[in-house]
């Protein structure tokens, strides 16, 4: 099952490689990983999207907690949470494509942030599954380039990851 794991870690050189090294050394799946400093600049917050059986996820959480630089770990799937990912897509927007691209982008609440004679660049945020749906709705030939940030997640309401 797909899990979103959030963690707070010391904002120190090499901390990211400890986490990514752990995943590769122990053979855990890693779908995406995002990281940036928090409002407290001594801490970084990371969101890892992974998948595995309950036993594997339990081990991942334990192994992450064991890393000395990791301050707190939360499996967002243990409760309600919100997930968002940002994607930029450059599509063909000439001739027959131009109107259609605008229409599809509107349906998915995308924003066109760059326009050229032959292309649109569309900014889209949402859950990973929404971004996937958007890509699926496009004709493969019309996609020139995509870039995605990977998911970020946060618990709903009183579910807080803070020290």
């Amino acid at each position: 099952m797909r899990h979103i794991i959030s963690l707070l870690m010391e904002n120190e050189a090499g901390a990211l490689s400890r986490v990514s090294g752990l995943f590769s050394a122990r053979g855990y799946n890693i779908e995406s990983l995002t990281v940036a400093p928090t409002e407290d600049s001594t801490l970084s917050r990371m969101t890892i999207v992974t998948s595995g059986s309950d036993e594997v996820i339990e081990q991942i959480i334990k192994q992450l907690n064991k890393l000395i630089d990791v301050v707190r770990v939360l499996d967002l799937n243990d409760g309600k949470y919100i997930e968002r990912e940002l994607m930029l897509v450059k599509v063909k927007a000439s001739g027959q494509y131009r109107d259609e691209m605008k229409r599809i982008s509107d349906i998915f609440r995308g924003r066109i942030i760059d326009v050229s004679d032959n292309t649109f660049t569309i900014e889209l945020t949402g859950a990973t599954s929404k971004l996937d749906a958007y890509i699926d709705s496009l004709d493969n030939d019309s996609i020139i380039e995509t870039v995605r940030t990977g998911a970020s997640g946060i618990g709903r309401g009183d579910r807080i990851l803070k020290i």
């Binding site: 036993e55 339990e58 081990q59 334990k62 192994q63 907690n65 064991k66």
Partner: peptide
């Protein structure tokens, strides 16, 4: 002493 040792290979 190590939580990660528990239920690693055997429940």
């Amino acid at each position: 002493i190590d939580p990660a040792s528990i239920s690693k290979r055997v429940k």
